[in-house]
Simulated assay, not measured.
Amino acid sequence: MSGGTGSGTGAGPLGYQHASGAAWVVQARGDLDVDTLPPLEAALGQAAASHHIVILDAEQVTFADSTCLSVLLRVRQLTDLRVAGPSPVLARLLALTGTDRALCVHPDVAAAALQT
């Protein structure tokens, strides 16, 4: 992915990316499953390689499965991953699996960026 701000065109799971203070923000959108996750996983991995804090803007996620949870937990091992504004679908999955206790979940990107 490019290092600059992107508009995230197309229908895939990867939306915009941009810096927010010391953090790098990556937007996820749509369905996050084994078939759609590779571009998002690659973007999160690239962000983790060059940023101490990575914020996943998850407000526009419409579906997520265990593959998504695996990706989030792997990225969490590489960097300070913060999930911002998870959609109701993702928030429910995180709560049902207890993953919300393993990940830093914030109400929105601004709150995730402010945490020290």
Rank of each mutant, 00 (worst) to 15 (best):
V83Y: 02
V26E: 06
A64K: 03
P38E: 14
L103G: 04
L73Y: 08
D80R: 03
S2H: 11
A49T: 11
Y16M: 01
A11I: 10
T116Y: 04
T116H: 13
G45M: 01
A22C: 02
D31R: 08
P86Y: 10
D100T: 07
F63H: 10
S70R: 12
R92H: 14
L93F: 13
A95R: 12
R74K: 12
Q17P: 00
D35S: 11
Q60H: 12
G45E: 14
D35F: 13
F63E: 08
V109K: 00
V54N: 03
T9I: 07
L69P: 04
A102Y: 10
G15N: 01
D57M: 01
T116G: 14
V34L: 14
G12S: 15
A111D: 11
P86W: 08
G6F: 07
R76K: 14
T97C: 10
C68L: 07
G6T: 15
V89H: 07
L72Y: 11
G12L: 09
A43L: 08
A112K: 01
L56S: 07
V89K: 02
V34T: 14
L37Y: 03
P88A: 13
R82A: 12
A113M: 02
A84N: 03
V71A: 12
A113Y: 05
L96V: 15
L56A: 10
P86D: 13
A11H: 11
Q60W: 03
A48S: 12
S20I: 06
A49V: 03
V25M: 01
D100C: 05
Q115D: 14
L114F: 05
Y16Q: 04
S20Y: 07
T99Q: 04
S2L: 10
Q60A: 15
A28T: 07
V25Q: 02
A22E: 15
A111M: 01
C68I: 12
A47N: 05
C104I: 10
G12N: 13
L73C: 09
C68F: 12
L93H: 11
L14I: 10
D57I: 01
A23H: 04
D65F: 07
S66L: 09
G30D: 06
S20Q: 13
A112Y: 09
V75F: 05
G6Y: 04
H18N: 05
F63A: 06
P38I: 14
V83K: 00
A102W: 11
D33Q: 06
R92I: 11
L96W: 08
L37A: 05
G30T: 09
R29E: 09
P13F: 03
T36Q: 05
V105C: 11
P88M: 10
C104M: 08
D31F: 01
T62Y: 00
A95Y: 09
V75T: 15
T116E: 15
A23K: 01
D33W: 11
S50W: 03
L90G: 01
L44C: 04
S87L: 08
D108L: 02
A64T: 13
I53E: 05
L44A: 06
G30C: 09
L114V: 09
L103F: 10
W24Q: 10
G8H: 05
L103S: 07
S50F: 06
Q77F: 00
H51D: 11
G30L: 05
L93C: 09
G30Q: 05
I53S: 03
A91N: 07
D65H: 10
L93E: 12
A111E: 12
L81H: 02
T5V: 12
H106Y: 14
Q115P: 00
T67W: 08
G15R: 01
E59G: 01
W24G: 00
A43R: 01
